[in-house]
Amino acid sequence: MAILDFLFKITLIFGASIGFAMTVQAPNRSLAITGTIGAVSYIPNMIASGLTHNVYYGIACGVASVTTLCYFAARMYHIPASILLVPGLVPYFPGQKLYQMIWSLFQLDLSDFITNTSGFVETSVCIYGSMLTMNLALPIIMQFYRRIKQPSKTKSL
């Protein structure tokens, strides 16, 4: 039952990523790729948040995997990475927290406002910090990998 529940969640995330891609008029050839990236990257999110009992670690791991998968998929399919990245981040967007933050501000509920604002800021830091880290790290890692690969190619020749 746990496996079915897990698969069902993954399917929902797949649908949500494709749905968001459709609302922002993503090209049709990118829809399945976006959905797959969104669904697959939810797995490290669930694992990390389950192991650490902290949703923010899950968000950071999920966003890191989305960024990584988009980096490689963009090069494989010649699609701009941002077209794949933005719908893939849909499960993590802090839009709901932002809405609740402004709602509690209007209601003059200070404690709720502080809670929602801190939630929004923490989620944003996790998402954008993780994205920035991977955007900086991936080119360096690939450069290092190519350097290692090249001497082994010349050796075999």
Binding site: L12, A16, I18, G19, T23, Q25
Partner: peptide, 22 residues
């Protein structure tokens, strides 16, 4: 225009319903 209102509407339905169910 390259925009499809039908595509956006269908996408909105999937997005809203899946995330609300989660």
């Amino acid at each position: 225009p390259m925009t499809s209102l039908t595509k956006a509407n269908i996408g909105s339905f999937f997005l809203s319903s899946t995330l609300t169910y989660l």
